[in-house]
Write a protein that binds this DNA or RNA. Structure first.
Length: 772
DNA sequence: ATAGGGTTAG
């Protein structure tokens, strides 16, 4: 009986079992050669239980048997068992050898017992063995101990290709691209030729180093030496081209592959997904499934992003189900985070929250994703709440992404003191020079009325990218310092920083707030002629606002008619606002018709129109708007105002009575109202759309959120202290007027930042005059 | 009969 031949033919578990039985029958089961081969055979077929059984039945085990058992465990991912088996071996009289250590070290690399083994290996003097040394280098690298890895590498007397590869990949996988290339060059100098393993380790660092040339030279080498047939090599090439955005080349590499695996498909799908082509990516996903490949976690991460990019809410649900069915959300943090992010981008906050809650393990990115979900959907209080909960978790340390996600929430509600705390934190953890964190802080300071501090910070942030410039230009803009914005814009160009579309939004709105009509028009022209940026809706909105505020209503109207994209509600809304300022009823009526075509649900626009009619005494117009508003199911964006007192941000919603100091607030408002009326305040009821009696209208006006916040400020801060208020919508015209009176009565400066700009109230007047 | 170094992510 030729058992060797039978071993060779056993390609399925049931055949292996027959062979096993045959060995028992023919009395060969105790033969140490055959029984050890059985251990390996079962392991290679993926049946670790049978492999172990076969091992246990070996009466006197030699080092071959032990090595086979340990490596069987490792091959099947049972690292703990492998190490346990190794310790068992140490209790016997059999001694481990050169073959034992590489496998054990591999198991250690996947667990956490590295140091211990290291000292042991050195004691035994086995380190001189090439295979052991390579395993050690690899293991240290896995624990991010590249220094130790390098020491082992340097102490080696002879090196083979495997040693070089282990060191290079060790550096690559720890993000030490430059060091990796150094070792690589050293290897070339010593005349060692790279193989497919070298190539697939080194290719992934080309993109982070922004070195496409090296990547392409390696590609040439690959073709010349026939390495392209290796899946690892081709996959690495595909990924490299994808990271450089060269989709055609990535696609070409994929097309020329003879064998493709799951990684190839995942890489191709991710390539298109990350270069913002979700449609093509989805096509490849479908093709991949048709070819019989089962998607894994990485496929699903891309898929989630594909769905959110294409904005398809229905698909998002089926992706969610698909992932849930396989239990991936609980198991895999990456997938869970990707799904949270998907729902966040689709604006489905409840689902994002639910998925977040359902995750077994959460890391910083999970928290960041949820915080971003809230900030991007303008829910600052919720974002702050989540951030505070996160800070309560010991194991989670905020990173750059956390700060970038929470700071906009602070800007949004004017939480200056909270923002300053983060500023301190950035200095502590060495993030003060980060462009993105720095820019968010500039925005916080600017939006909290601290322009000087914003400028100071701007001086310390690297400014070779447009990002911090955009923030500081916009910061001056909302304070009405248009000239300063334009000056910074000039300076930016002089320093050779290229403005982007965000820059122009900042510049144009700065011009419109400061009434710089000519300069604004020049900038608009510059944007297209010099920088070849096609204006978007926001740029058009700024221009309409700019012309409209300046009284050029017809010109603004013409401007809209000549737009290259369909005007949205904000563009028409800007013109309607201008009609109100300049009391143009005829154009206002026309504009409102067009406006309600694109957005008939926003109650603010009805208020604006009713206002236009009321100002010229056209009461039938007011009635018409009122019934129009009543007949349509209006979506009312809840108005809120916030104020920060003693490190705490309080948010007031209109007519809210749930605040602990509610009673005192309403009492204060009553007192104020009487005093205001005595010195000439008359409520303007055209800001109330509800069809109710006059005294009730007065009640509605004086429970607007901005007044609640101001009253709260008055009763909680020392006399004559400046009050800072933040409102999410535009300040109501009647409240604007009332605040002037309040500033006079209380002898306080009141600073109100609304969705549009800053209003400084002082001594019965406002910095913006009667604009609101 | 047994051994090292490789490609994809939020």
């Amino acid at each position: 009986m030729d058992f060797n031949r039978l071993f060779h033919l056993s390609t399925k578990t049931h055949i292996a079992k027959r062979l096993h039985a045959l060995l028992v029958v023919s009395g060969e089961a105790h033969n140490i050669f055959f029984s050890t081969r059985l251990v390996n055979l079962y392991a290679n077929l993926g049946d670790i239980a049978l492999s172990r059984q076969a091992f246990d039945l070996i009466p006197t085990k030699n080092i071959f048997s032990w090595n086979s058992m340990i490596s069987s465990f490792v091959k099947n991912g049972c690292f703990q068992n492998a190490i346990h088996c190794y310790y068992q071996l140490l209790t016997t009289r059999v001694r481990p050898d050169f073959f034992t250590f590489p496998v054990v070290l591999k198991a250690c690399g996947c667990l956490s017992d590295g140091k211990k083994i290291h000292s042991w290996v050195f004691k035994m003097g086995f380190c001189l063995d090439l295979f052991v040394a390579a395993s050690l280098i690899h293991m240290y690298s896995r624990f991010a101990l590249v220094g130790d890895a390098r020491n082992v590498f340097d102490e080696m007397i002879t090196r083979d290709l495997g040693s070089w590869n282990a060191m290079i990949s060790g550096f690559c996988q720890n993000g030490k691209a430059a060091e990796a290339l150094d070792v690589f060059r050293e290897m070339c100098i010593e005349g060692v030729k790279m193989d497919s393993v070298t190539v697939s380790s080194i290719l992934p660092v080309c993109a982070p180093l922004n070195d496409l040339v090296t990547g392409m030279l390696i590609h040439v080498y690959v073709i010349k030496h026939g390495l392209a047939f290796d899946v690892y090599v081709s996959n690495a090439l595909l990924n490299m081209y994808a990271k450089f955005g060269s989709l055609e080349l990535a696609r070409k590499v994929f097309d020329q592959m003879l064998v493709r695996d799951l990684v190839s498909w995942n890489s191709l799908i991710a390539a298109y997904e990350q270069n913002h082509d979700p449609i093509t990516a989805l096509g490849y996903f479908i093709e991949m499934k048709q070819k019989g490949f089962q998607p894994d976690v990485l496929t699903l991460v891309s898929l989630a992003s594909i769905v959110s990019q294409s904005g398809n809410v229905r698909n998002s649900r089926s992706v969610h189900c698909f992932i849930m069915k396989r239990g991936f959300i609980a198991e895999d943090i990456f997938v869970g985070n990707a799904v949270v992010d998907m729902y966040a981008k689709l604006g489905n906050i409840d689902y994002a929250r639910k998925v977040f809650e359902a995750m077994d393990a959460k890391d910083v990115i999970s928290w960041n994703s949820l915080i971003t979900c809230y900030t991007q959907n303008s829910l600052a209080s919720e974002a702050m709440e989540i951030y505070n909960t996160m800070r309560g978790r010991e194991k989670i340390v905020p990173d750059q992404g956390t700060l970038v996600s929470i700071l906009p929430a602070y800007s949004h509600v004017g939480a200056l003191q909270q923002g300053m705390k983060i500023h301190g934190f950035t200095i502590k953890v060495g993030l003060q020079a980060d462009i993105y964190v720095g820019t968010c802080l500039i925005d916080v300071y600017a939006k909290c009325g601290r322009l000087n501090d914003a400028m100071l910070l701007f001086g310390h942030v690297p400014r070779r990218s447009s990002v911090p410039w955009n923030a500081i230009i916009a910061g001056h803009g909302i304070h009405g310092h248009g000239e300063k914005s334009l000056y910074l814009f000039e300076q930016m160009q002089e320093e050779g920083v290229k403005p982007d579309h965000v820059t122009f939004v900042s510049v144009l709105s700065a011009c419109s707030h400061a009434g710089l009509v000519d300069r604004g028009q020049q900038c608009f022209k510059l944007m297209r002629d010099k920088y070849f940026i096609e204006p978007g809706l926001k740029h058009y909105g700024c221009m309409v606002d700019l012309l409209g505020r300046a009284g050029q209503l017809e010109m603004a109207y013409e401007f809209i008619k000549n737009m290259h994209v369909r005007p949205d509600a904000s563009v028409w809304g800007a013109l309607l606002g201008a009609c109100r300022i300049h009391g143009n009823v005829e154009l206002g009526t026309i504009v409102s018709d067009r406006l309600f075509e694109v957005d008939s649900e926003n109650v603010g626009y009805y208020v604006l129109l009713s206002n236009i009619y009321a100002n010229v005494g056209k009461w039938e117009g007011v009635d018409k708007v009122r019934s129009l508003a009543k007949n349509r199911g209006l979506k009312k964006t809840p108005g809120w105002s916030s104020i920060e007192v003693n490190n705490r941000v309080d948010v007031f919603y209109t007519a809210n009575r749930s605040h602990p100091q509610s009673e005192a607030i309403y009492k204060e408002l009553k007192v104020l109202m009487d005093k205001m009326k005595n010195i000439g305040y008359v409520p303007d009821y055209s800001f109330v759309l509800q069809d109710v009696e006059e005294d009730e209208k007065e009640q509605i006006l004086s429970s607007h959120s901005e007044r609640l916040a101001i009253a709260y400020g008055i009763i909680t801060t020392p006399p004559k202290a400046t009050i800072h208020i933040f409102k999410n919508l535009r300040v109501c015209g009647d409240c604007h007027n009332a605040t002037k009176y309040i500033s006079k009565i209380t002898e306080r400066e009141i600073v109100v930042r609304d969705s549009n700009r800053f209003h400084h109230f002082k001594d019965g007047d406002c910095s913006c005059g009667d604009y609101w």
